[in-house]
Design a protein around this nucleic acid. Structure first.
Lengths: 225, 225
DNA sequence: GTCTATAGTAGGATAGAC
DNA sequence: GTCTATCCTACTATAGAC
């Protein structure tokens, strides 16, 4: 039972070190310090091991942040938590693992569902915070928490990958988003006049574009609560 | 000379079909319809072929959109162009290629510089549009165009990968960003009162956070103009 | 459950004929 | 420039000893 865990940890380490392209039963076993044949004894295939590692790693990390997500009281605080989370998880290489798995899942349909489930674990946390924050904000009519949460997750992954090839640029990107977040403070502080202006804009329907979904997530499978 | 091009095209096709993890001299040659040994004759290593493909593909596509970037006159139009670009390039699989290369570059230091250069081709376009749009907007003091352009690029890549495992969620994310973009319309329309409020917020320095860069890109290598 | 050994396959790279 | 043939390495997966 201990070996299964060592293999999973070894898998995560292998992904961090060699990327999804460099993962093999041999590299994983080397990182785990166990025999290569044990990969197949315990998991059958390398793919299945990746699936197991994907779930374990994400569920663990989401759990760590659950309380902090629940304590968030403003968009500003959410952004700050996002930055902390980014710094901390980057150091541990957990976002990198998820990004690599996501890249691998693009062309591996057996990996796609577990990766989607893993992403949903993060997305659901963000979504519930956003729903809570935006519900009685003047932005309520303007935003779909579910969609926005997914946009945030996607951007997070993108920034992680971006940072891998251009750390300075990634820092500038985060700082820019930080500056931009001031906008939400402004909206919160402007008072009833701005609220009325916002509503005016919201009601004024924009010219329709060719879009599949107009608002919200009609029937997205959530995979994991 | 024709074979080099066929190999590059074959590489892009191989990345689209098999992902970065499935790229090899053999798969590339198969996609290109040429002999496997020609990869090494023309490019020396598979890595070098990836580098060449990375540059060619990106430069070509950026060129296609250059005029349309130049014609953008508002943030709303920029978002619309982004959506069009997303739809079109997704169909052709070009964003997917860049995303896969980016994932591969995380653990391949020979691939990282060319991928950064390729990303910069896109980022520079976006940055110049943002700079033009934001220069005389009330948002000018609030935003760093260089950083924001990088955030946009990163989010774009992230959304592409997200879409690969959850198309419905990705659509919801794009729709949410679309809704949110209304915020910029509001700011533009609120008039001098809001401008003054914005300035008040901008001047009121927020408590300092541990950040390496406070504003702008001091000395980021641009790689490619 | 864990190890060694090994079959069978795919991939990087080169030599040499054409 | 392009092809065949080939070497060597690394990989997945299994069989069988312990």
């Amino acid at each position: 039972m201990n070996t299964k865990q060592r293999l999973i940890d070894g898998t995560l380490q292998a992904i961090r070190t060699h990327g999804i392209a460099g993962v093999s039963a041999r590299t994983v076993a080397a990182c785990a310090g166990v025999n290569q044949a044990l990969v197949f004894y315990h998991f059958g295939t390398v793919d299945a091991l990746l699936v197991a590692a994907c779930h374990t790693a994400t569920a663990e990390r989401v759990q760590v942040y659950r309380d902090r997500f629940a304590a968030v009281g403003s968009l500003r605080e959410l952004l700050d938590l996002g930055r902390d989370l980014h710094t901390e998880e980057r150091k541990q290489g957990n976002v990198a693992v998820l990004a690599q798995l996501l890249a691998g899942a693009q062309t591996d349909e057996r990996l796609a569902p577990p990766v989607r489930a893993a992403l949903n674990l993060w997305t659901n946390e963000i979504e519930s915070v956003l729903r809570r924050l935006l519900d009685r904000s003047p932005l309520a009519d303007l935003t779909d928490p579910a969609g926005l949460a997914r946009a945030v997750s996607a951007a997070f992954i993108g920034l992680e990958l971006y940072e891998g090839v251009d750390p300075t640029g990634a820092t500038a990107a985060l700082d820019a988003l930080d500056q931009l977040a001031t906008l939400t403070d402004v909206v919160d502080d402007l008072g009833p006049l701005a609220h009325r202006a916002l509503r005016r804009h919201t009601r004024k329907e924009r010219p329709p574009r060719k879009q599949t979904t107009r608002r919200g997530l009609p029937q997205t499978p959530t995979d994991q609560a």
